[in-house]
């Protein structure tokens, strides 16, 4: 599903590689935590999957895409098969909840009748039915993140990338968000989540890939945050 082969990434502005000979494989339907301190290479890892960056060396595969080698014209296809959630939600303040979710489909040219059918379904899945017409500013942080998750999932991606999705949320709300991500994972979607949250990683007992100075220093099938440090 996702495979990195001896991937290194060196930014022009830095002497130390952000990723240093990383080889990792993730299966379809897996739930993987990507942990490590700031600057360990988590974000670069995720950006490589999205082809926001191109590796300096090595190869990156997502589903059938040879990400590092593919032409620019095919990049949108890749991104359509990956959903993204961020710490800062990135919702459009001028659009309602339903419009924010619909936006993701509109801009990839989905027909209107599909959109009106799919958007309420996904809003129900994330537990936001009844709040379709609210604006993001009228929602709590947890609710806003649900909108973001709905938007990331509405096109039924193969992979959901979550970059510290609970970073701005209190522990209880974080738990709710994790339950939601788990539910999405159970539909067969691979979930890759970068996080600093010990509690969540320890309680979920999922695969943990730990990065340190750009190298994979740990890969446990059912890991916790603190082991080996």
């Amino acid at each position: 599903m996702i495979r990195l082969e001896h991937v290194s990434k060196v930014y022009k502005t830095s002497t130390r590689p952000a990723l240093d000979d990383v080889s990792v494989e993730m299966e379809k339907g897996e739930f993987v935590f990507l942990i490590g301190p700031s600057g360990s290479g988590k974000s670069t890892f995720l950006r490589l999957l999205l082809r926001e960056e191109v590796p300096t060396r090595g190869r990156v595969y997502v589903s059938n895409f040879d990400v590092a080698k593919m032409s620019r014209r095919r990049v949108p296809r890749l991104r359509q098969s990956i959903g993204c959630v961020f710490q800062d939600f990135r919702l459009l303040p001028t659009k309602t909840v339903a419009e924010n979710v619909a936006f993701a489909l509109e801009v990839i040219g989905k027909p209107r009748n599909t959109i009106v059918k799919v958007v309420p379904e996904v809003l129900q899945l994330v537990g936001l039915d009844g709040k379709e017409d609210r604006f993001p500013t009228e929602l709590s942080g947890g609710e806003q993140q649900r909108v973001a998750i709905a938007r990331a999932f509405v096109n039924r991606p193969l992979v959901l990338i979550a970059d510290e999705p609970t970073g701005n949320l209190d522990p209880d709300t974080s738990q709710d968000i994790m339950l939601l991500l788990e539910r999405i994972n159970r539909t067969g979607t691979t979930v890759i989540m970068a996080t600093h949250d010990h509690g969540i990683v320890d309680s979920m007992r999922r695969r943990v890939v730990e990065l340190s100075f750009g190298k994979v220093v740990r890969d446990d099938a059912r890991g916790v945050y603190g082991v080996g440090r």
């Binding site: 999205l50 620019r72 014209r73 990049v75 949108p76 296809r77 890749l78 991104r79 359509q80 098969s81 990956i82 993204c84 990135r90 459009l92 936006f103 993701a104 801009v107 990839i108 040219g109 938007r151 096109n155």
Partner: peptide, 17 residues
């Protein structure tokens, strides 16, 4: 830029953006 960022992320084509 926020809209455009989201459009890129969800896989809108260059033309659409």
């Amino acid at each position: 830029r926020v809209e455009v960022g989201i459009m890129r992320l969800v896989g809108a084509t260059r033309w659409y953006t």
